[in-house]
């Protein structure tokens, strides 16, 4: 008595499995349809709604939205007061990105190349916890630090370096009454909050540089500095670019940090929030919101060319 070579299907599950096997695309479609519908309808639909709003305008006398296609609202972005907001935000995003890259590199490099075993785990947690811990709490911590009566002022007095702080605060343009009401304060907080977003992709791409490659460079007579410049840095570049996507994008759209820490000057995120809320000018808010989208799309396409998506 031998068993049959083909087992007959025993029920619906077997029949469905057979169907999926004969038509693999069917299973794929069933899997991907719900998330695609969600993202397509909820997310892309919303983005479309935003885009639509940005082509409307507001009637200056009645304050009502005119539902007619116009580029007038985009024109308003070019007004000096609005253009200032955009340039200020861009400047901040660039400064924060560069600062993050500089602070992040030694951490990422050490974690990727030298930390082993327990230290490696400690470093990983040490980067991940600040990344995931509460955003508002982190901002709040900086409000405490930068306050005029706070720890930083106390520390400079204790070390007799108050003159340094005062010199920084008296700098034209970026200084202010206290750190918590100056651009320096805003910049410090942004850098702190987004720093982990820079470290992780940087570390990931550095970890992909094999040790043997560094040894090969040294073997071929490169000095440590040359190895770093000609081997490590180019290979770490995709990670740096990937990290900068986050620091750049997050700074461009944030409206809470400049609201809590800094001068009263507006940033793109704040403008969007205030225009759609108190001012009720949804078309202009929408047009403002399109600016970071356009900047980020350009940035992403450049980053893709630099191979940054493999490091995400």
């Amino acid at each position: 008595m031998t068993a049959p070579a083909i087992i007959p299907p025993r029920g619906l599950a077997d029949r469905l499995t057979t169907l999926f096997w004969r038509h693999p695309r069917l299973l794929l479609s069933l899997l991907i349809a719900p998330p695609l519908l969600w993202l397509g309808v909820v997310y892309l639909g919303s983005l479309a709604a935003l885009l639509l709003q940005s082509f409307y305008s507001i009637d200056e006398f009645s304050g009502l939205i005119v539902h007619e296609f116009t580029l007038k609202t985009y024109g308003e972005l070019l007004r000096p007061s609005n253009a200032d907001v955009i340039l200020r935000t861009l400047g901040m995003a660039i400064a924060v990105t560069i600062a993050s890259a500089f602070i992040a590199f030694p951490i990422a490099y050490f974690a990727a190349r030298y930390a082993k075993g327990r230290w490696k785990a400690a470093f990983y947690l040490g980067i991940m916890l600040p990344l995931w811990s509460s955003y508002l709490v982190k901002v709040y911590a900086w409000k405490l630090i930068l306050a005029k009566e706070g720890i930083l002022t106390w520390a400079t007095e204790a070390t007799h370096t108050s003159w340094l702080l005062n010199a920084a605060l008296s700098l034209p343009g970026v200084g202010g009454n206290s750190l918590s009401t100056s651009y320096i304060g805003t910049f410090l907080t942004f850098t702190y909050v987004w720093l982990p977003f820079m470290i992780l992709p940087m570390q990931a791409s550095l970890e992909r540089v094999p040790n043997s490659m560094l040894e090969a460079a040294a073997d071929l007579g490169a000095t440590a500095r040359q190895t770093f410049r000609t081997v490590v840095l180019p290979l770490a570049m995709p990670g740096i670019v990937a990290g900068s996507i986050f620091t750049f994008s997050l700074t461009l759209g944030d409206y809470i940090i400049p609201q809590i820490i800094g001068t009263s000057a507006s940033f793109i995120g704040m403008a969007v929030y205030q225009l759609q809320g108190t001012a009720g000018n949804i078309p202009l808010a929408a047009a403002f919101a399109v600016v970071p989208i356009v900047i980020m799309l350009i940035y992403l396409s450049l980053a893709k060319r630099a191979g940054a998506f493999d490091a995400l």
Binding site: A3, P4, A5, I6, I7, P8, P9, D14, T17, T18, W21, R22
Partner: peptide, 28 residues
């Protein structure tokens, strides 16, 4: 085993055509 399907031609296992039989129903 059935993890690939022929582009053309026929496969028989103990005389039975398996072109419509998925891996889990083949006694292989």
């Amino acid at each position: 085993s059935g993890f690939e399907k022929p582009t053309s031609g026929q496969i028989r296992i103990f005389g039975e055509d398996v072109s419509a039989v998925p891996p889990h129903l083949r006694h292989v």
